[in-house]
Design a protein around this nucleic acid. Structure first.
Lengths: 402, 402
DNA sequence: CGAATAAAGTTCAGCCTGAGAGGAATTATG
DNA sequence: CATAATTCCTCTCAGGCTGAACTTTATTCG
């Protein structure tokens, strides 16, 4: 599979990358698109047909005389990819073919009654079950799991996790890998959500983008030049931990559900959810003002730290802020700080993490098949088609299964 | 010069990169170091000897019997590189050979009496004069200028500058390029100072490193994986602009010479320099406390934004902080925030900017000669040798010339 | 002085690409 | 319906490059 010289692999990759969109392309178009010679394209294509990575497509009849071209297309059935969005309460799985076409989705309650090893084996069995039931005997080629925790920069281990302490350390990952006969990759759920936004969302994939996740906690992910930044201990972007200047609180105490609720109670307010805080600003005046000021501060920080073209905001807590407030914040940022970043709500919302895990698994699958630069390639169904498939992807529908 | 196929260029580059250290290396060692075959190394070396990029070195006699190897070395005289550190008051130039060996240094007062075009031509004439007087008829192969201003991410234009408004816009760069017969590159002085620290300082060049420059103003530069981050408008890292939460001031108002002096006066203090503030903490108590708290906050922000292995601190204002204070701040950062970054004073100090400009020019020179990955290569004299040459590089000696 | 050894060169087969010739399929045209 | 025109596909071949093996040259040691 990885035979041949570097030149050969590179040419093979050039051809494959053209076909990862899933389109049916004839050889002449491949010659034009890759810049390779006819002979090379023909040989690479016949090799790929031989190894069943490509399949013959229909003949293409063009206007005018001349022989008809026969197209080829990427063989989606060659392998499966599985993306997993592992959360504190729910565990979401999606199985796709090699072209990123959704085959099946599952939703489980995350188990809390087993140790690290048992948890890894349980997650592995969830994936295996999905593949066996819906995979139509195709082999699983790549699995990527998004985790609610800090993942080391080399992606080899989970350094820490608030919600799922059992995934910390090597045991979980060893057990998971041991129970699956496919390459398993992990990353932080925020990072994968950002990958999802870059691949299937509405931001240009190579522009600097920051994803702010204001949910139960507060975290951020950053991408520059199509690469997602990561730190040695996975703490890069964990701005929720930031102590505020001259105050006892941290940023997450003012900008997350759990944080603001706790802070409110410490001030003597009685409240159940933070939604009511923003619904009754006259009653919770100081809390609302504090939270808004903290949001402004967070935007200032990420604007100057990363100078992003876009700042995407997502997570349940972020719904407390209106679009008008985003626009005001952007104007203030531009005038006061000098950075002009678009501040907008994420288009994918809760689906981003799962879509990112899926995109990551797909990329690794394609690299395994010989597409070297697959990490940044446009893969499979277009954005609109994907969004249509994940249209129903809201927390409510998820809780009730697919 | 750029002839041959991609494979050929790559092999040529592998060989060249080994020789950029300036060491005399025999062909067998090149074979071992590059992993290429003897035949390839011999052909590449004889081509490079032909084009005078390499020259024959002495024969190397090893213990034991056998024919002696004849070494080759990079021909330092093949071209010149010029680094320029353009400041608001001083303009420093260094001319080196292709191996980064210092040939001459100059120091001029920065002119403020000419317009953009005149300024570019003046700077060009400074470089030309240096080359003509000390260059021994070698051709100038690359020039890099570090500027006190924001440089766009594509390095094509100066977006803004406090101290030198005349360099803003395209005219200055056009005039400078027009008056020099060599490739001219520009970058922000903070970014080049960080490059200098990575190349000749005491931090590992591929680890995430943040350079904080606390001088008249406050700015930062960031490197990850050996690459220096940059934003579209050159504002990435300009954390001095950060408005503080719940206060009127910005970070630079508490952490820079000009800022703290102005802030102190606004509070009713009479002071000339900020040095006296830290010298008399009992008299300026609130100021000192504010400034220290701001430093802690800045460290918290860069730690969570970039998760650096090292935070280097430099600039005149930073001398107000003691090494003990750095150690305390690091311990607090580790315990409270969870990020363990070394906080230390820059080893190069005021020389970093010029060394970085020189390193940048050298890299571009080497790329021009065919060393593709030269941007991250270790070049020329070792760190200790460079530091010895720039030992006298303090603001005082610079003001009085070389 | 000759054998041993190590490095310097040289030759050659194999791989891969790109160019081009020629065959095959298809449509336009008389 | 036959022929020309056009496009797609297949095959061959020259050229460039690499790596392995071989020869040559120089030096040391017995």
């Amino acid at each position: 599979m990885d035979s041949g010289t570097a030149v050969r692999r590179s040419n093979r990759s050039s051809v494959l990358e053209q076909l990862l969109s899933g389109r049916e392309i004839d050889r002449q178009e491949l010659v034009a698109a890759t810049g390779l010679s006819q002979a090379t394209v023909f040989r690479v294509v016949s090799e790929l047909l031989e190894s069943r990575i490509l399949v013959e497509g229909p003949t293409i009849t063009r206007a005018g005389r001349g022989r008809n071209a026969t197209s080829v297309r990427f063989n989606g059935e060659i392998a499966l990819a599985c993306g997993v969005d592992l959360g504190g309460t729910n565990c979401r799985l999606v199985l796709t073919d090699a072209l990123g076409r959704t085959i099946a989705r599952r939703n489980y309650r995350t188990r809390h009654d087993v140790d690290a090893r048992g948890f890894g084996e349980w997650l592995g069995s969830c994936v295996r079950e999905l593949v066996e039931q819906d995979g139509a005997n195709a082999t699983l080629g790549a699995v990527t799991v998004g985790l609610p925790g800090a993942v080391a920069g080399d992606k080899t281990r989970v350094v820490g996790s608030q919600n799922l302490p059992q995934i910390r350390g090597p045991e979980f990952l060893v057990a998971l890998r041991g129970s699956l006969d496919a390459p398993v990759n992990i990353d932080n759920d925020s990072n994968l959500a950002l990958l999802g936004e870059l691949r299937y969302g509405s931001v240009p994939p190579t522009e600097t983008t920051v994803l702010l996740i204001l949910g139960t906690g507060l975290s951020a992910a950053v991408a520059m030049d199509g690469e997602i930044l990561s730190g040695a201990q996975g703490l890069l972007g964990e701005l929720g931990r930031l102590p505020l200047l001259g105050r006892e609180q941290r940023l997450r105490d003012l900008l997350s559900g759990a944080g603001l609720a706790g802070y409110g109670r410490s001030l003597g307010y009685t409240l159940d959810t933070t939604a009511e805080v923003f619904a009754q600003p006259q009653r919770f005046g100081p809390l609302v003002a504090d939270s808004r000021a903290a949001f402004t501060h967070l935007i200032d920080i990420v604007a100057l730290a990363y100078e992003p073209a876009s700042i995407l905001v997502t997570g349940g807590f972020s719904e407390s802020f209106t679009d008008d407030w985003f626009a005001d914040t952007r104007a203030r940022l531009r005038d006061l700080v000098g950075v002009d970043s678009v501040i907008q709500r994420s288009t994918l919302g809760a689906a981003a993490g799962l879509l990112g895990a899926m995109a990551h698994a797909l990329s690794h699958l394609h690299i395994g098949l010989g597409a070297l630069g697959a990490l940044s390639a446009t893969v499979g169904p277009g954005r609109d088609e994907i969004l249509e498939r994940f249209r129903s992807y809201s927390p409510e529908t998820l809780a009730s299964g697919v």
